[in-house]
Amino acid sequence: MPGTENGNSPYAADHAVLCDAVREGGALALSYFKADPEHWEKKKGDPVSEADIAVNHLLAAKLTRAQPSYGWLSEETEDDARRLSRSRVWVVDPIDGTRAFLKGKPHFTVCGALVEEGRPVAAAVFNPATDEFFEALLGQGARLNGQPISVTDCDEIAGCRMVAFGPMFKHPAWPTPWPEMEIIDRNSVAYRLALVAGGMADAAMALNAKNDWDIAAADLLVHEAGGRLTGHKGELLYYNSEAARHPSLVAAGPVLHGALLERVQGLELA
């Protein structure tokens, strides 16, 4: 089982529980995939399905039963401010990429992280439709289906494989046009970042707000795979704040990350 080899880590037991829960959550999500699950909108443009709710219940039951003293933050659970007083918090997204999930596209993930004092220390991101299980433990590296992974050594923006919303780079407000890149479109933010961690993409970027549950697990994947993930001004992201929200993200190997920051760090986002 992923994580059990990391017996020297103080987070090894929690990591093993997390991996088991995320794997089971992925199997449950997959049972609804392409099966026309009931779905509705929480607000305009923000879909949720019965599968999201079912996976949320499964993750909550397994993780909070294992560690009842930890805080809990999930996209599909009403926020409980008591998490702010807990040094360790489970941060989960039952299905990240619900739009893709409902359209029958295999670009969704089940995500979970253990956050301690604002930073992820154990993480799992599972795409059950493609059977890609990414996981990481602080100081122990990142793995895909049990094998070590690392970010690429790509050092130039031109020609890089960028996972992002393509039209963003064509906006007329950019003072200097972006060079041509291979743009990869994936609905799940966590999956975008996992692809960077696994070397299947060179970089990922978003200049619109994302939530803790979109990013926390994949943040650890990227860093443990030798990359960097920050806001667009270069700041490290911290989780389990009151807002639990971040205005932007930039992820890549160290050199490419620096090149991307040079282009975007002067932006003032609304």
Rank of each mutant, 00 (worst) to 15 (best):
P2L: 02
G3R: 01
G7D: 06
G7F: 09
A12N: 07
H15R: 01
D20F: 00
A21E: 03
G25A: 07
L28W: 00
F33M: 06
K34C: 15
E38H: 13
E41W: 08
K42Q: 15
K43L: 06
G45N: 11
V48G: 13
E50W: 00
A54V: 01
L59C: 13
P68S: 02
G71C: 05
W72H: 10
E75Q: 07
E75D: 12
R86T: 01
V89E: 02
W90K: 06
D93K: 03
D96I: 05
T98Q: 06
F101D: 11
K103G: 12
G104D: 08
H107V: 03
A113H: 12
V115C: 13
G118M: 03
A124S: 15
V125Q: 10
F126M: 05
P128M: 03
F133G: 13
F134C: 12
L137Q: 10
A142T: 02
A142S: 09
N145I: 00
Q147N: 02
S150N: 00
G159K: 07
M162D: 04
M162A: 06
A164R: 01
F165Y: 15
P167Y: 02
W178G: 11
I183G: 12
R192M: 14
L193V: 13
A194S: 13
A197H: 10
G199I: 01
A209P: 14
A209V: 10
A217L: 07
A217P: 14
A225M: 02
L229H: 00
L237D: 08
N240E: 02
S248P: 15
V250G: 11
G253Q: 08
P254W: 02
L256A: 06
L261R: 06
V264C: 06
Q265G: 01
L267P: 14
E268I: 11
